[in-house]
Amino acid sequence: MTNPLFYAKILLFGEYGIIENSQGLTLPYSFYKGCLQFSQLQTDFEKSSNQSLKKYAEYLANIKIPQEFKIDIERFIEDIDKGMFFDSNIPQGYGIGSSGALVAAIFEKYSLIKRKPESISKDELKALKKVFGLLESYFHGTSSGVDPLICYMNLPILIENKESVNKVALPENEMGRGAIFLIDSGKIGETGPMVQIFFEKLKNEGFRKTLKDEFIRYNNACIDAFLKKDMNPFFRDLKKLSYWVYEHFNPMIPESLFKAWKRGLDTNAYYLKLCGSGGGGYILGFAQDYDKAEKMLEGFQKEVIYRF
Rank of each mutant, 00 (worst) to 15 (best):
M1L: 12
N3W: 15
F6T: 06
K9Q: 13
K9P: 02
L12Y: 05
G14T: 02
G14A: 00
E15I: 02
Y16T: 04
I18G: 02
I18S: 03
S22F: 12
S22Q: 09
Y32G: 00
Y32S: 00
L36T: 09
F38G: 04
F45N: 06
K47P: 07
K47N: 13
Q51C: 01
K55G: 06
A57L: 11
E58S: 07
E58L: 15
Y59H: 08
L60S: 09
N62P: 02
I65D: 02
Q67K: 12
Q67D: 14
I73P: 14
I77Q: 09
D79C: 15
I80F: 12
N89T: 03
I90R: 11
Q92P: 15
Q92E: 11
Y94T: 02
G97E: 02
S98Y: 06
S98I: 09
G100I: 01
F107P: 01
F107Q: 05
K109Y: 14
Y110G: 07
I113C: 14
K114Q: 12
S119E: 12
I120A: 11
S121G: 10
L125N: 13
L125T: 14
L125I: 13
L125W: 05
L125F: 12
K129Q: 13
K130Y: 15
V131K: 11
G133F: 08
E136K: 04
Y138I: 06
F139V: 08
G141F: 06
S144V: 00
G145W: 03
P148A: 05
P148T: 01
Y152I: 03
N154A: 14
L158Q: 10
E160R: 15
N161F: 11
K162Q: 08
L170T: 06
E174S: 12
E190D: 10
M194Y: 00
M194H: 01
F198D: 01
E200W: 10
G206Y: 10
R208H: 06
R208G: 04
T210M: 07
L211R: 02
L211S: 05
K212I: 15
K212E: 15
D213S: 12
F215E: 15
F215K: 08
N219V: 04
N219Q: 05
N220S: 10
N220D: 07
A221T: 11
A221Y: 11
D224S: 15
A225Q: 04
R236L: 10
L241S: 06
V245Y: 08
Y246E: 11
H248E: 11
F249N: 06
F249W: 05
N250C: 09
P251S: 04
I253S: 10
L257M: 10
L257T: 14
D266Y: 07
Y270R: 02
L274Y: 00
C275Y: 01
S277T: 13
G280N: 08
G285A: 05
F286L: 06
A287K: 01
Q288N: 09
Y290S: 08
K292R: 13
A293E: 01
E294C: 05
K295W: 12
G299T: 00
F300A: 07
E303I: 10
F308V: 03
